[in-house]
Nucleic acid binder design. Structure first.
Ligand SMILES: [Zn+2]
Ligand SMILES: [Zn+2]
Ligand SMILES: [Zn+2]
Ligand SMILES: [Zn+2]
Lengths: 171, 171
DNA sequence: TAACGCGCGATATGATGTAACAAGCGAATG
DNA sequence: CATTCGCTTGTTACATCATATCGCGCGTTA
């Protein structure tokens, strides 16, 4: 098992800069081009730490000197997904910058907090083994996996508890 | 572990009739109304054995004496999802009749064949335990789970292999 | 009967995603 | 240098998926 939610007080500027640097490197190594446009889309995602809809990205980039049409955002996203620099969160029709970079065929589980909207990417060997076993059990060859769990992160759980309690008192 | 793909030669008329009967019972038991409209939507899903988009359902019902507007199909789907009579396949923005009926909180994994479009609903205790462990490991409280794996079913895998081989011969 | 909840019709609108074709632009080729 | 080629981007239009809102009909309840 591995990874959790981004801590609430981390150095986010640094976090974004690092992610962009890793993306530059990765693209360089693979001989693909992280063009300015693609870079801006990835940066918008990285700055958010929450899944963003394609049109949310459009909105954010609209506030910069150079707006980007929706079509171009989708194309950039296609590229980022293909290169593993971003993930698609199917249950939200939204996209997320990938912070770590995963091994190929590594199985990733997304934990989606409904309250604070943060995301944890969890990788678990045991989970992967069970998945393989469950699929192979019926002779199925897996290609793509969508593993998403929504709920409440630890921090938000505590907050909700506090809110509930104070409501109880005021009643 | 449990369940697989519907066999290619099963008595589908019977399969649909049974599913509808179970749905009638379930609604009756819970005191909710499986109205004619809801029933027709469920039946359209059950007849397909593959996920259908909402507007595909609209199209199929358009061919009957009494077409159903999209809005009503969505409302029926909301009901069917709430009652656990249908599932939403997030990675396809589509819907699927539930054949078995699951225990509450049972964890269901969908295997989606990219070629024949059939779906297997797999439940696995081990998978559930690992999921719980992975989520609890970071203090996360899970509410909804989306577990979807797309790939090739056993039958389609064999077909593809045959196609590949015959291509190899003709070259 | 009157009030109410609920299912449904009807229309409009919003959100998400693609198709198709033209134009820019840099690298390779001659 | 001029040409050609492939990839990226701009532009417009369209397709698909989903929700908002208002009002009517109908059975239940007070
Ligand atoms: Zn950060
Ligand atoms: Zn949270
Ligand atoms: Zn069947
Ligand atoms: Zn198949």
């Amino acid at each position: 098992m591995n990874a959790g939610f981004p801590s609430l007080d981390h150095d986010h500027k640094r976090c974004v800069a690092d992610a962009m640097a890793r993306a530059d490197e990765a693209c360089d190594a693979r001989g693909v081009r992280l063009t300015p446009l693609r870079r801006r889309v990835l940066q918008a995602l990285a700055e958010s730490h929450s899944p963003l809809g394609a049109y949310e990205i459009v909105e954010r980039l609209k506030k910069t000197r150079e707006p980007v049409p929706a079509m171009s955002v989708y194309r950039a996203l296609d590229f980022l997904l293909a290169e593993g620099l971003a993930h698609r969160i199917e249950s939200q029709n939204a996209f997320l910058a990938c912070i770590h970079g995963h091994e190929t065929d590594e199985i990733v589980l997304f934990l989606l907090c409904e309250r604070c909207k943060r995301v944890a990417e969890v990788t678990s060997g045991a989970l992967g083994r069970d998945l393989s076993q469950a699929t192979r059990g019926v002779g199925f060859s897996a290609k793509a996996r969508v593993l998403e769990v929504s709920g409440l992160c630890n921090a938000c759980k505590k907050t909700e508890a506090r809110v509930k309690q104070s409501q109880g008192i005021s009643r």
